[in-house]
């Protein structure tokens, strides 16, 4: 893939009435939504890859290492796809990490209760984690629309509640009982050399990009973020749509929970406190506006590689991995600043 050159060749602004060969209006519109900060995500990503790759090619550019980067990024990506929809409506979901853990706990409990390693148990676990995530998402949506809490507060509340709930359910001790077949299958399995979890993230990215870019659901998502009153006056059922969007985000957190169980073969109740921030960073880096109205799932997929590359590369360089969090914070501030300036410039026309 040569995304860098593609970005350059896409003409910007209203003057672009030149030949637009082989590109349907839909693709053009989708493309337009991805420009801006997404090209920034790609630039940052390519620079990071180049720097780490050039500095430590023997450590960084190995199949093993790149695979572990991709697995890490895939986890962020699944959460960040849901975050992309939420943020495109102008909202935010801080609860994704906690919902992930809570859903995983419930999933393990169900799978342990059923026992065995069979596909039925695994399937029951998947359905449970997804349903649990969905339920938390619906709750977020209800808090935002019916209780009219600001998304930041509503999802901060569920962040706390779901995190605490997971600890209550487990007494603070990680649960065993993840079927080995799940760990060896989804957790470590590969197809064409690429881990299943990465395939899953790729598939969800494509699906998410199609939904956001080509469907009415996606259009309403962007409209609500762009001008909620315009959506309302056009007869869009805004509350119902927002509930669906938060539910989708919760559902994806449930899927991520299942992947998490497969990767770590335990519930990791003490972890994932930074997942919400990682997902937000990936989303914003990918070109989704913090102010709503503009979103790109494809950009998010690129964006979610950045935190993963950073943490991996910093370790290889020999710095403490904690620097990753510092770097992510700095990148987040920088990208939102750029977004903000862009927005202001556009509206000052």
């Amino acid at each position: 893939m040569t995304p860098g050159t593609e970005v350059k060749s896409a003409p910007a602004g209203p003057g672009e009435d030149g030949p637009r060969p082989l590109r349907s209006a839909a693709l053009a519109a989708a493309w337009r939504n991805m420009k801006g900060t997404r090209s920034l995500a790609l630039v940052v990503l390519l620079v990071l890859l180049a720097v780490f790759g050039a500095a430590y090619p023997d450590n960084f550019l190995t199949a093993y290492n790149l695979r572990s980067v991709a697995i890490e990024a895939a986890s962020y990506c699944v959460l960040a796809i849901g975050m992309t929809f939420v943020m495109t409506t102008g909202g935010i979901d801080l609860s994704v990490g906690s919902v992930l853990i809570f859903s995983g706990v419930v999933g393990v409990k169900v799978m342990s209760a059923l026992g065995g390693e069979g596909p039925l148990t695994l399937f029951a676990g998947l359905v449970t984690t997804m349903a649990t995530g969905l339920a938390w998402g619906v709750l977020n949506g209800l808090l935002v629309t019916k209780a009219k809490l600001p998304p930041l507060i509503a999802t901060l509340a569920t962040l706390s509640a779901a995190g605490g709930g997971a600890l209550v359910l487990t007494n603070g001790l990680d649960l065993r009982g993840v079927p080995d077949s799940l760990v060896s299958g989804l957790g470590f399995g590969r197809f064409l050399g690429i881990p299943y979890t990465v395939w899953l993230a790729i598939g969800l990215t494509i699906a998410g990009a199609i939904v956001l870019g080509l469907t009415r659901f996606g259009t309403y998502t962007r409209t609500i973020g762009s001008n909620v009153e315009a959506a309302r006056r056009a007869g869009v059922a805004v509350d119902r749509h927002l509930i669906k969007v938060y539910a989708l985000c919760g559902l994806l957190a449930g899927i991520a929970a299942y992947v998490n169980l497969a990767r770590f073969s335990t519930t990791t109740v003490g972890g994932h406190t930074g997942d919400n921030l990682q997902a937000i960073v990936a989303t914003v880096l990918g070109g989704t506006s913090l102010f709503g109205g503009v979103g790109s799932v494809l950009g998010t997929a690129f964006g979610s590689l950045i935190p993963a590359v950073l943490s991996n590369g910093l370790v290889i360089i020999g710095l403490q991995p904690f620097w990753q969090q510092v770097a992510v914070g700095a990148v987040l501030a920088g990208v939102v600043y750029v977004d903000h300036v862009n927005r202001r410039r556009r509206t000052l026309r």
């Binding site: 409209t223 762009s226 001008n227 315009a230």
Partner: peptide, 19 residues
């Protein structure tokens, strides 16, 4: 106040709610 969605294009605004 026009009630347009500024991030959408004119066609999307025209058909908003009746796509």
């Amino acid at each position: 106040d026009l009630a347009l969605a500024p991030d959408l294009d004119p066609a999307e605004n025209l058909f908003l709610g009746r796509e």
